[in-house]
Design a binder for these strands. Structure first.
Lengths: 346, 346
DNA sequence: TGTCGGCGTTGAAAGGTTTCACGTCGAGAG
DNA sequence: CTCTCGACGTGAAACCTTTCAACGCCGACA
């Protein structure tokens, strides 16, 4: 880099004042060029623009925000940025935000309370115009505090019990139900539900739907077992696979329903690698229908969620909340859909 | 929400001034409580803290930044946020940033020049302390402009031809070479390289490495063919699979080397779903060794890159560039490693 | 010739924080 | 009793932008 670059010359970045000076106009005029170019005569405008280019002027967004009180930025706090489900949701948000001329920052809470809090505090301090979040706990008082302090917040893939926020969800109980009904239809009478941690509402509700469907089918309560995992990850799926393989033959299930596809894929890999056949020895149902589900060792039956629509809708709700003075909170719920593939059909 | 929340009461958020007033102290003292609590007597500190809590005070980061000139924030502009390779890299960055008490914003350029520019401009205006980026084009003059204007920038998974930035890469030519050498060792004499768009350096260099290895093996140039894709995505892999299946029998390759795992997995799925056997009818090598590679329909041979280390190292270089006055640009290069699995071993 | 409207430009105020040179007060030393 | 010093606390300045009331100027019109 040349030593004569503007920033290198004196360590201070050029401000509108510097531009004004060089262009022989007042401060206000530079600002006009930036924000209402039509109010400025062509000659002056040109002079100012030349000065900006010469100096390498970059507008200071902090100062603008301070003055304007808004940032034209949304943020999405993801529960797990390495899970394709959430990156697809994020993409839906990004597209909607882009259309509305908003920037979007992504943050990853990694499923940890502490990291989530840190991100939220930081975003609030940054004065983002609104926050989208898939929270660790949708009823955490912290979320209410944030809206109370003036930052609108929309919950994605969860809902607040009291309906205190806009939220967009997919009916997880129904998702659990259709998965289990499918397995019951296929003749399974002993099934494991694989998922955790229990603190995640998604995990609980899919389980509740499963249990309800199981009861409705008149099957014995004890024959729907729960295999707990520490996280909704590929690796945890593999571990769960080992645990199931280790069960005494009599109590081993003939099918598993996994709380998400990452677990299902990890479990599938473990099962296949030990020479068992899917679905003959063990049928598997996943959840999310991420792109990899169809391409797995055995194409995976999964409960599909409208991932991108989820994100888009959430962003639209947030935009409304920010702009529309008589906005009212809405709880939008999508319907999941079972996609049956080889892992249960054989 | 109760109507009596601080923000609802008058539409303006409480500032240090309001806190000072309520706590009966001066402005400066509030700031001291925030930044040098030890300089404030216990009683005063307590009074100020109580006032903050009562008012629901949230520090205005824009104002602080404006005053301080730095933001304690890094940003990573990803080439494709839905590609697990990049989310793993991002995770490496995040961990290093967290350790250094920096916030990290993720942005997704989605492989598009325009989106990348928009993000960069915005980040520069936000005065982030540094930018990490996997660029569409590492030699774009825009990148040089950004550092010239005072924002340090580190390139991830690419390198600038002129060495004008710190960068962290994995030797893509070598990666291409080991992939092809492996296939040649397995006896393949007609191979397709599947990847695109050509504008991506990763795609070009893996091809160059492949070609060099192919020549070194003394095989006919015409027998290493190139099947172009529009993107490094699962879907494009599926399409490429159809194109290959559509080739006349004589010119069909016995193995493919895909520019990344997403393509390989998409292609694998297409191939398996049409009843062909892998590797007997078609051997497949991928690139990246993402977590899903091992769990695919047929466990995928792939060229492994140290994804998380890549991110961590890049972040460390950037931290040095920001803090160390006599920082010198470095080009760090990691070595890829072939992980052989069923998709080539049978 | 005097008035008026409109256009282009100006300059100061405001927005919330940090910093720093300065007060103030009380205690301990001489 | 005075002086010094440390511990606490103060208030103004600075950071950079946007906004807005006001101003100067010009041509048009009465």
């Amino acid at each position: 880099m040349s030593i004569s670059t503007p920033a290198a010359r004196n360590g201070r970045r050029p401000s509108v004042k510097d531009v004004a000076e060089r262009a022989q106009v007042s401060l206000g005029t530079v600002s006009n060029v930036l924000n209402r170019p039509d109010r400025v005569s062509a000659g002056t405008r040109e002079r100012v623009e030349r000065a900006m280019a010469d100096l390498g002027f970059v507008l200071n967004e902090s100062a603008r925000q301070l003055r304007m009180g808004r940032s034209n930025t949304f943020a999405y706090v993801m529960l797990d940025a390495t899970n394709p489900f959430f990156t697809d949701v994020a993409r839906g948000i990004e597209l909607a935000a882009e259309k509305a001329d908003l920037s979007l920052f992504l943050c990853n809470s990694d499923g940890r309370d502490a990291r989530e809090s840190a991100h939220l505090a930081h975003l609030q301090q940054q004065r983002v115009d609104g926050i989208l979040i898939t929270p660790v706990d949708p009823d955490a008082p912290e979320l209410a505090r944030i809206t109370a302090q003036g930052t609108p917040l929309v919950i994605v893939d969860r809902a607040n019990t009291a309906g205190a926020f806009c939220s967009v969800t997919v009916d997880d109980r129904l998702g659990g139900r259709v998965a289990i009904e499918h397995l019951v239809d296929r003749g399974h009478t002993r099934v494991a539900y694989v998922g955790g941690p229990w603190s995640l509402g998604q995990v609980r509700e899919r389980w509740e739907g499963s249990r309800a469907a199981w009861d409705d089918a008149g099957l014995a309560e004890a024959d729907l077992i729960h295999v707990a995992t520490e996280a909704l990850s590929f690796e945890e799926g593999r571990i769960a696979g080992e645990r199931i393989a280790g069960l005494p033959r009599r109590s081993r299930p003939s099918a598993v329903f996994c709380a998400n596809d990452l677990i299902a894929l990890g479990l599938l890999q473990q099962v296949v690698s030990t020479g068992q056949r899917v679905p003959e020895d063990l049928a598997i149902v996943g959840y999310d229908d991420i792109a990899f589900a169809a391409g797995a060792a055995v194409p995976l039956t999964s409960v599909r969620q409208p991932r991108q629509s989820l994100g888009r809708t959430a962003a639209e709700l947030l935009i409304d909340e920010v702009n529309n003075p008589d906005h009212e909170h809405q709880q939008v719920e999508f319907t999941p859909e079972l996609i049956a593939r080889t892992s249960t059909l054989g």
